[in-house]
Write a protein that binds this DNA or RNA. Structure first.
Lengths: 176, 176
DNA sequence: TAGTTTGTTCATTTTTTTCTGGACAGTTTG
DNA sequence: CAAACTGTCCAGAAAAAAATGAACAAACTA
């Protein structure tokens, strides 16, 4: 039986209802990360979780996150799983509490590297396969069209190579 | 009264139904661009349109795109509008035909530049505003937490600057 | 000018994505 | 060992995004 965690103190807005409120700072952080996370094509709830953890001075268990963000157990569990998989959060030990406690990971480079490896590279790879298949197909097309098609495929390949060669550079740049 | 455009020839698959088919090459191109377009957070129909235009040796009117992609007028119109706004396609004059004819634009740099200016920069800008607001808010927080918070905001600002400074470089890199 | 053709817009429908909450499995505790 | 706790998973609900098609406007045609 653990002592009731009480992080919901230091609120000056007199919150009549029992609902835990978020400080202005927390709201700003959450909004910020919702935007960023959506830009990367991930669900809003993931941004909420990371945003709150980002400004929290102490590690938070899932229960607190659910409570303060008014989020279901399922979303919290799934979201944290995703964040863990990207190395964006990690769990830390908290004495006398059986639950996992989460803290945000502040190293952007790991996050970016995992995101690129997981989401971008696969697309580039399958893109390359497609281009190769297309190059094969073009050989069987009517001569009249072949030239145009070959020209365009060459451009496509060029884009692909450009993208491919840019990724390592971006990673290097992010590793401050 | 224009002559019926007939691009649906050179198909060797004996297509019993009246439905216009797509060649293997077209299908590959469409798939490729659907993937790319979705990565950028745009609807699939936009990828279909660009993909077909990319491999088409001749300019195509909207009607043909709708027909061959089995797509509604609304989607086609909206999708082409979006592609135009990014400079990814343009219309060209075709003698004796009142309709707009579309061709794909092959210059990646303009596309990327417009995408960044339209989708990425605004996020970075609003992010900066948020960070500034947060820095203000932190000053009023309890001393115990202030240090942590300030530390994290500094990191956040650092990320922001990094992102900001990376964009011009990416653009320069893309301008082959 | 009346009738076509072409393309846009937008309210509705459809599809896809995300969220929810309960069943469940694994741990711990008494 | 039974009861409580913690977290995962997943079927169904809810929300968000995309596609549809018909109404409309503009431009042309006869």
């Amino acid at each position: 039986m653990r002592a009731q965690t009480e992080l919901d103190s230091h609120e000056h807005s007199p919150n009549s209802g029992a609902r835990p409120v978020l400080s202005e700072l927390e709201v700003e952080a959450i909004d910020l990360f919702i935007g960023l996370i959506k830009l990367l094509g991930m669900p809003k709830s993931v941004g909420e979780l990371y945003g709150l953890l980002f400004v929290s001075p102490v590690p938070l268990p899932m229960e607190t996150l659910m409570d303060r963000l008014q989020m279901s157990k399922g979303s919290a569990s799934q979201g944290l799983k995703l964040l863990r998989s990207f190395g964006a959060v990690k769990t830390v030990y908290v004495a006398g509490d059986r639950r996992d406690h989460y803290v945000a990971e502040f190293d952007l480079s790991r996050f970016a590297s995992n995101f690129i490896k997981g989401e971008v590279q696969p697309h580039l790879d399958s893109g390359l396969e497609r281009i190769q298949r297309m190059e094969q197909l073009v050989k069987d097309s009517p001569a009249a069209e072949r030239d145009t098609a070959e020209n365009r495929l060459a451009r496509l390949r060029h884009w692909h190579e450009k993208g491919q060669s840019m990724l390592p550079w971006i990673l290097k740049f992010l590793v401050s």
